[in-house]
Design a protein around this nucleic acid. Structure first.
Lengths: 220, 220
DNA sequence: GGTGCTGAGTGAACAGCGTTCACAAAATGA
DNA sequence: TCATTTTGTGAACGCTGTTCACTCAGCACC
């Protein structure tokens, strides 16, 4: 909680660092990873390109920080919904739809966060990944939710918490990626008459949760 | 079916073009989009970098051809399963799991195919996309399958074919992306004891189809 | 057979990229 | 005030995609 460091040098440093991140964030949100270059950031904050390397070890390191911060904000929003007092299966559905909607506020960020390919061997990652903390937190929210559904009998008892949680994550991640990638999803060019994007997110969330529910489910 | 063009010049041209694509495919599969450069391809086939531009308009054009070919191969495999005589809900599940498994045979290809972000405005795409033909075919397979499930009463009658199909696509796409991105999915570093990757794919496929089924579903 | 012509292939160059490095300037601690 | 550390810079290296003037081989036609 004691974020305020007092020496002028330290305050100056985090201010410049923040300016770099903020400029990068701005460019990245609009033009994506392709439009973001070290020289571009340097122009934006009126510094020389080399200066940025006094604050970040590499471009990847800088971008990773952007991605993780954004993903953290998504999790924050989902957490807010998860803790809200609301009847259960509805709340679960809202968690899913909130995740997707939050992710789509900055499609470039979200897609970039998942765009690397991890190597099969246990070597150091090539594609940039999430910190274990973010992965773990995303995962914790979901397992907790599944656990709740199991406890109150809403979900099928034979389900394994962790496994079901990963399945939910995969499915909602897929929708976020689809909409981010195809600007016209779910309408799609070949099939113009379709559900609105907002309605589709809710529909998808319903399907995801429904796949876990125990009894024959009925909706209002 | 009359692919054989007779003039030596024409045959030579498609042979060189094929060599370029084959070299690119090889490098791309192992090192991904990052490791693939025009100069690298040129080295691989003992041509000058400029020569490649006699066969492809740009690097993006070349890579798009790789991606589409790969996605086409995925669809081919899924189509084979979809047409096979097999009891229905099982066949539907197999379509989903086949899609995921095929996609994961070349993770770099699959991830790259979905890595661009389409602009919100109806301008020309910035991220590389699928040809409408591939999108349409992927979509056609799924809608047909959903239609079959609706006809034989296996799926809930209130479902809309196209909407349900898109939802399936999103969910299975999500799993493919997850496994491609996190090398340890679904185990994951923080939670090592978990289902095997193969079993998880089947489990996920089961959940996806189950979310569409009408009655209380029971499995063997 | 000689004569254009079309297309394949090339080396050199351009602009941009991430990154490094020796160096100047400024801020800091004594 | 002096020494030291930190901050910022310009120039360079090696890489990238792409273009362009150029050469040369193969083909059609008279």
């Amino acid at each position: 909680m004691e974020d305020e460091l007092h020496t002028p040098a330290e305050r100056r440093r985090i201010r410049v660092r923040g300016a770099i991140l903020e400029a990068a964030e701005r460019v990245f949100a609009v033009e994506g990873e392709a439009g973001l270059s070290i020289r571009r950031i340097a122009d934006e904050i009126d510094y020389s390109p080399a200066a940025i390397y006094k604050y970040f070890g590499s471009k990847d390191e800088l971008i990773d920080e952007l991605k993780e911060a954004f993903f953290g904000r998504i999790l924050e929003s989902v957490n807010l919904i998860a803790d809200r007092a609301e009847p259960f299966p509805t709340r679960a559905r809202r968690c899913v739809s909130t995740y997707v909607r939050k992710a789509l506020e900055k499609p470039h960020h979200y897609v970039a966060a998942f765009s690397g390919v991890a190597p099969p061997a246990p070597t150091v990652p090539e594609g940039c990944e999430f910190s274990d903390s973010n992965r773990a937190q995303a995962f914790a929210i979901l397992t907790e939710m599944v656990g709740e559904g199991l406890d109150n009998g809403c979900f099928r008892p034979e389900l394994v918490r962790d496994t079901a949680a990963k399945s939910i994550w995969a499915s909602m991640h897929g929708l976020a990626m689809m909409i981010a990638h195809f600007n016209d999803f779910p309408s799609m060019a070949t099939m113009p008459s379709a559900m609105s994007q907002d309605d589709f997110i809710d529909f998808h969330a319903d399907l995801i949760i429904r796949s876990l529910e125990s009894g024959p489910t009925k909706r209002d």
